[in-house]
């Protein structure tokens, strides 16, 4: 399995900051767009709910992302359904063990710590979708779903992953922060892109010149 090599985050963040500062002049003008509207104003359109300007469902925050992967649906489903594969593209997940319907996730925490999350598979439709939910009484209240659909024009498969969670606040918030390490939307986006890289190219792209110690 390819090592997961990522540039030092601090470096990337420093660049991100400098890029963002450069953009401030251009971006300021569009800030008003995102203010002053609330959910009641939202008329029905065909976009996924999570792309709304205030994507909240009761207590839950919902993040999600779609990518098209140039591989057949059954291959992608099979790779994902073999849950021990997930750490190959999920940066913070050390291991996933499945016993029956239960998944036990070992998640990397800060400073060498690790953390266990238990979820139950709540839906599993072959070559179509897999969904899981944290087991009642967990510190973390979260639900996830991944869907596989044929892409148009022979482009492969559209893969859509959605994660719902109760956003930070109190003990659960700290646990969530530990679970995702970064903002869940960012984390989810990265994981899906790494999944695409791994399935299309057999490896995860890195600019590193040397293996991490």
């Amino acid at each position: 399995m390819p090592p997961k090599n990522t540039p030092p985050h601090s470096a990337v963040r420093a660049v991100a900051v400098s890029v963002c500062v450069g953009l401030l002049a251009a971006g300021a003008a569009s800030l008003w767009l995102s203010s002053g509207r609330n959910r009641q104003d939202r008329r029905a359109d065909d976009a996924p709910g999570r792309t709304g300007r205030l994507p909240r469902y009761g207590d839950y925050a919902v993040v999600g992302k779609t990518v098209t992967i140039n591989s057949p649906r059954h291959e992608l489903y099979a790779f994902w359904r073999e849950f021990k594969n997930l750490p190959r593209f999920m940066e913070n997940v050390e291991a996933v063990e499945a016993s029956g319907d239960t998944l036990v996730w070992t998640i990397r925490g800060p400073a060498g710590s690790s953390y266990t999350l238990r979820t139950r598979i709540i839906s599993d439709r072959k070559n179509e979708q897999i969904a899981w939910r944290s087991i009642d009484g967990s510190d973390i209240d979260t639900e996830g779903k991944v869907m596989f659909r044929d892409a148009p024009g022979g482009r492969g498969t559209e893969v859509e992953a959605i994660i719902a969670y109760v956003p930070p606040g109190g003990a659960a918030g700290r646990a969530i922060a530990r679970l995702f390490r970064r903002e869940p939307a960012v984390q989810g986006r990265h994981e899906l892109k790494r999944f695409k890289m791994l399935m299309e190219t057999g490896e995860v792209a890195t600019a590193n010149n040397r293996k991490l110690a």
Partner: peptide
């Protein structure tokens, strides 16, 4: 190419 830029720098 969709895959050659590492995910962290894609964010930029």
């Amino acid at each position: 190419c969709d895959n050659s830029n590492p995910v962290e720098t894609q964010d930029l």
